[in-house]
Structure formats: C-alpha cells, structure tokens
C-alpha cells in the first residue's frame, strides 16, 4: 500500500530529518510511528500524502510512485487527521465533515446522507450536525476530525498525534473508538504518537524512530520482548511492558483448571476481558498463584495462572 525506498530528507545541509529510510506498509495494517520529538515521525507521515517531498529516494503509494500522482488527487485519496483537529470554524459540523466531498463537487443530497452516516460512525448523534466547532468539547472535535478524514472513504488514513491534546480519560475512550473503526472498516492507518502506551495499544505494527532512522519495527510482542536495538529497549522499556500488561486480555492466557481451591473461588475470579495486570494484581493481593476466569455470563471457564504466564510464547 505504502512503500518507502531509501528515502532521505533534510531542510538544511548536514541536518538530516530522514536518512535512507525504507519501510513497507501493507493494506489493512495499523502502523504506529513512535519516537522522541524531532525523530522525523511527522515528516515521514507528511511525505505519504505529498505535503513534504523527499530530497531523494522513492515513495510508492498504491503501486504508483508519488511523482506520478497528481498531488491534489493523491491527497483526496488519503484521509488526514491532525493534532489540533483543524476543524473549519466558519462551517457547521455537517459541512466540516462533508468538506472532502465538497472538494470533489459531490451532490448536496449525497453529502447530507454521508454526514449522517459519519456522525453515527464516530459515536455522536445527529443533533451535532447543525452545531459549530466552537460548541464542541475537545474530544467531540476530534471525533468530527476523524469523521472528516473518513468522508471520502479513503483506503489510507494518516493521523498525526490526533489525541495529543485530549485529556487522559477521553483519550482512552477515543483510542477504543479508533480501534473499533479500524476493525470495522478495514482501512490502512498510519498513526504518529509519542505516547508509548498508545502505540502498544493501537498498532498492529510499531515503528520506533530516532534521528530519522528506523530503530526497531515489529508487532507489540516484538517491540516489548524482543527488542534488538539499545535505543528501542531504553525508549520502550518497562513503560512499554506495563502498557502491554494493561492491554493484553486475560482471554489470551487462560489455562486449564488443575484443581486448586482458589481457582474455584468465584469471589476471586477475574473476567476474561480484563487485562493481564488485573489478574496479576488479584493474585498478589490474595497471596495465590492461580485464580478462576469467568466469561461475560459469569461462568468459570478456566484459570489464570502466574506459573502459566512464564510458559507463554511471546
């Protein structure tokens, strides 16, 4: 879907932003670009829709090199969400969401219908259509920003720290929303963040960048447990591991019962949808190695076993 071949970029001589970078993003992946400020992650993202042209190297989008794309058509084929949302203050929410369609001179009735679909898709109700951006909270604005990126139904969506300005609680809610949209629409998403927890939670592929180079690339298991570079190890480290425990569900590590009393004690049992960290805490609190796991109906379906965890293959 998106390929970078030996791409380099620098704004002033001797200060490279991106150095000989190659990257391959497949259709349907959720790729998170993460790294410290100035590592080139936003530059990399802006190269994908042609906002920044590389000094050298080749970028291929949907099988066609970026030089062969009409820059306007390329941008219309890619959804784009930015941190400050960038909603247009003089347009209603409906007009904001329909803006990408407006650019392509879509019929008014079709725009209206699409706006109604989109507002539901991002979890708001139709009363918001007639409102203006200044009447919305930060989280609501970001939802509209996402809806706008989805308006023209692009296959690729680029998100540049979309949740950077949203508070902790709303951020978690919006992250779940993004995962839901990703899973239901099967888009290719490239997401820039500097929040390790967010990266571990969202990405099917995580790219750790530093000084314009890829330090590490892989799934969350790869990044947390099999880091090959010292930089990625230090950058992700225990924070990444903690996020991992917060995100991986107990459902993925259920062991068979083997007859201890604690397993059968329903008051100790955890839900299969809880993250690992809840199970570990419950064990430590109660001084046991194993506890039961119940499903959504409340029936015990297996055991959560600290001893079992070490045998998991990550």
């Amino acid at each position: 879907m998106i390929q970078f071949r030996d791409v380099s970029q620098q704004y002033e001589a001797g200060k490279p932003i991106i150095q000989n970078l190659s990257l391959n993003i497949e259709a349907g992946e959720f790729v998170v670009l993460i790294g410290p400020s100035g590592c080139g992650k936003t530059t990399l993202l802006k190269m994908m829709n042609g906002l920044i042209a590389p000094n050298s190297g080749e970028i291929i989008i949907k099988g066609k090199t970026i030089k062969d794309w009409d820059p306007i058509v390329l941008k219309r084929n890619i959804g784009y969400v930015i941190q400050q949302v960038g909603l247009f203050p003089h347009l209603s929410i409906e007009k904001n969401m329909a803006y990408p369609l407006d650019l392509q001179k879509t019929a008014a009735a079709q725009k209206q219908e699409r706006a109604r679909e989109l507002i539901h898709l991002v979890g708001l109700d139709e009363s918001y259509l007639k409102k203006y951006p200044n009447e919305l909270s930060g989280g609501q604005k970001q939802r509209v920003g996402m809806a706008r990126a989805l308006a023209a139904d692009p296959e690729i969506i680029l998100m540049d720290e979309p949740l950077g300005a949203v508070d902790q609680i709303n951020r978690a809610v919006l992250q779940d929303e993004i995962i839901r949209i990703y899973q239901s629409l099967h888009k290719t998403i490239v997401f820039v963040t500097h929040d390790i927890e967010e990266a571990i939670k969202l990405g099917t592929k995580i790219v750790v960048l530093n000084q314009g180079e890829i330090m590490e690339i892989g799934t969350r298991d790869d990044i947390v447990f099999h880091s090959k570079s010292d930089f990625a190890e230090a950058f992700i480290g225990n924070k990444g591991f903690l996020s991992y425990l917060n995100i991986v569900k107990i459902k993925q590590v259920i062991c068979p019962f083997n007859g201890s009393a604690a397993e059968k004690d329903i008051t100790l049992a955890v839900n299969e949808a809880d993250p690992l960290i809840v199970g570990i805490r419950r064990c430590l609190e109660n001084g046991v190695n194993k506890i039961g796991v119940r499903n959504a109906n409340g029936t015990l379906i297996g055991a959560f076993d600290l001893g079992c965890l070490s045998r998991l293959k990550f």
């Binding site: 829709n49 906002l51 306007i72 058509v73 390329l74 941008k75 219309r76 084929n77 784009y80 930015i82 400050q84 949302v85 960038g86 909603l87 247009f88 203050p89 803006y99 990408p100 407006d102 650019l103 706008r148 990126a149």
Partner: peptide
C-alpha cells in the same frame, strides 16, 4: 488564518482556489 486550519485543508486535497474561496 490559523496555519493548522490551512494545513488540514491542504492535506485533504484542496486546490489553491478552493483553499482561498472556501477556507
């Protein structure tokens, strides 16, 4: 005009004329 708003409009594929007239 806020540069973020302009960037959002450009990033969505506005032509220079659309950017001027609509935003």
């Amino acid at each position: 005009v806020d540069s973020q708003i302009m960037e959002a409009a450009v990033g969505m594929g506005s032509t220079p004329w659309q950017l001027l007239s609509k935003i």
